[in-house]
Structures are given as C-alpha cells and as structure tokens.
Computed example of a mutant assay.
Amino acid sequence: MRDVAARAGVSAMTVSRVLKDGQVSTETKERVLAAVRELGYRRDEVARTLRLRRPSGMIGLVVTNLGNPFYSRLALGAEQVAEEHGLRLVLGNTAEQVQRERELVEDLVARRVDGIIVVPAGAGHRHLGSASLGGTPVVFASRPPSGTEADTVLVDDFGGAYAATSQLLAQGHQTVGFLGNPPALFTGAERFRGYWAAHEEHGLTPRETWIRRGPQEIPTAEAAALEILGSDDPPTALFCTNNRITLGAYRAVRRLGAATALAGFDDFEMADLLGVPVTVVSYDAEEVGRRAARMLLDRIEQAPNTPQSPPRRTVVPISVVCYGT
C-alpha cells in the first residue's frame, strides 16, 4: 500500500480510503487506481483478517470421494449458501483415508476457516470435534459423528434402501442380490439394514451367496456382480448402495446379456437410457450441502463464550423412481 501511495503521490491512508470506497476526489481516486493497476497490487486478505481479528470469510468442505457425483452436488449446495453470505468454500478430498482427513482438517484450521463441513472417513471421529479443533465449528454431512457430538445432515439411508428393495419384491422378484459399501460405513450399514428389512417384511431371507458388502467403485462392483450373476442360481434383481455400484452392476448385466433388474441408491444422469429396468432412490444431494452450510453458519454466528445449543440432526427425504419398467 505504501508503494501505491508513493506512485500516486498520496498518503497510505488515502490509498486505504480509495480501496474502501471512502470519500476522496475523483481525480485522486483515478490516480490511486492507476497506480494499483501499474503495480499489480492485491490486498492480502489473510493478513488483513489477522490484523483486524475478523473471520476469514472461508468455510471448509472435506469429502471422501470427489469421483462420486453425490459429493460434487453436495459441494454445489454448500457453495450456494456460502456465496449468499459472502463466504468462499475451500474443498478437500480424503479418498476415505483417516490420516488424509486429519491433515486436511488441521490445515483448514491453521488457515483460520470460519467452520468446516465434513463427510467423515473411518469409524471414530473424536479428532473432528470442535473442542479438538480449537473451537472451530464442525458439521457432519452424509455420515453421523462417532466419539463426538456435532450437528449432522443425513439422507434417509434405511428408508430409501427399504423402499427400493420393496419395489423390486413387489414387481415379483423373489431373489434380490445386494452390492454395497463395506459394513463399517454408516451408509453401507443402514442401506443393508433397509434391504434386509424389506425381505423380512415379505417373509423372505436373502441368500448369503447373493450378498457382497465391499465394492465401492465401478470396476469392483462389476466384478462382484459378474460373480453373483454367473453363479448356478443367480438372483433376478440386484440392489446397489450407490450410483457408482449401480453402474458397475449394469456393466455386468450387459456383459452377460442377463435380464437382471437393477435398483440403486442415488439417481444419475441417463438412468432412463440404460435399456434395463432400473429403480433408483432419488433425493436432493444439493439440499444436503445447503442444510449443512446453514447449520454451520448458525454455529459461526453464535456469540463466543456463550452456552451452545444441543447438536441437531436433520434427514433429507427420498423418493423412488422407476425407469424402463
């Protein structure tokens, strides 16, 4: 700023007033702005934040798999709310690695973000508690906290899996296989619970040979589906716990030329063009991000050193959509 002042022939205080749209003459303002352009001056927002002891104007978002469209849509929803409040979103990806999660979150706290939305990896989340992060507010999305308490936004995982599996059973499929996330993941466990409950409701028990609880991506899901459908007594339908797994199962069905019906959690583009019956659990992934961001802003705006309200939990509803049936 002193360099700009020297170039424009004014005081540093005048430069400050110009940059803040303060009261200065038009001639002086034009001279200062010309000096700014010539010198390529950019205000250091981080240094300014530290000096004024103000919030950084940034919130962090940490997710587990940017390759899954669910997380990009979640990020869009969170960014929408952040921008409405003049904030910027900083995004990080953990690839389901707890150590990577720790590093990203610690880095965000060191950069003085105002708060963090996190889709947690692993089974224990004590390191993500606000107290462990020096008071930085944290909101959990998609998966609930374990070992700490925090505001949480979830999808109706159990209800969606139950509804989709029930739809397959109602269509006459008495044999429905399962392709899902590892049981250690909350979403995988809840969606398996919904799949099993739907069978119990219809007086059926799925065979263990039709169940694979481990695939997370398209190639591993395809391999698991090929194994199930290539057996001597394959199921006539498969329930998949996310869009990536559904696409892997579709590849297996197409490769085998099977008439297997598919159902999966998460709607996805061109689901209606696959050429096989597909039932999807649809919900607004952007709403997950919007709700998480609003919860976080509520915590950020609470006065420091005041009693905090109890942790809140909200669940985004689902609907079931059938394509090609």
Rank of each mutant, 00 (worst) to 15 (best):
A8D: 00
L256P: 13
G147Y: 03
L238M: 10
A189M: 07
I300D: 11
L296M: 06
R294W: 09
K29H: 13
R42S: 01
L273H: 06
T148H: 15
E101I: 15
R254E: 15
A12H: 02
M13F: 02
T49D: 01
A6L: 12
R112Q: 15
P311H: 03
H85E: 05
G194W: 04
L104S: 11
N68V: 03
Q167S: 03
Y162K: 06
E201I: 01
T314P: 07
A293D: 12
E83N: 07
V62H: 09
A82H: 14
G188P: 05
T325I: 11
P304L: 14
R112C: 11
K20M: 00
F158R: 03
I218P: 09
R100Q: 12
R213F: 14
P120D: 15
R251D: 07
S146K: 14
C240Y: 08
L128T: 14
R2F: 09
I211V: 14
R100G: 02
R254D: 08
R191F: 04
Y195H: 07
E84N: 08
Q97Y: 14
G67A: 02
R213Q: 03
A95R: 04
D267S: 04
A121I: 08
G230K: 05
G257D: 04
E227H: 13
R51A: 13
T260Q: 08
A35W: 05
R294Q: 12
V4A: 05
S146Q: 14
C322S: 14
V253L: 06
S130G: 12
G147N: 03
R212E: 09
P307A: 12
D3T: 00
T148I: 09
T325P: 13
V155D: 01
A47W: 15
A225Q: 05
T28R: 00
A225M: 15
E287F: 04
A141I: 15
Y71L: 05
Y283E: 13
S16E: 08
Y41T: 01
T187N: 08
L61I: 11
D157S: 11
A35I: 00
V281E: 03
A259R: 10
R48A: 15
L154V: 00
T209P: 07
P137G: 07
N305E: 09
R48G: 10
P219K: 12
A6I: 15
A150R: 00
R126H: 14
G135C: 13
A35Q: 01
C322M: 10
A141H: 12
Y162G: 09
R43W: 09
V278R: 06
V15C: 00
P120S: 13
T325N: 07
L91G: 07
A221P: 01
G275N: 10
A164L: 10
P183D: 04
L128K: 05
L204F: 10
C240H: 00
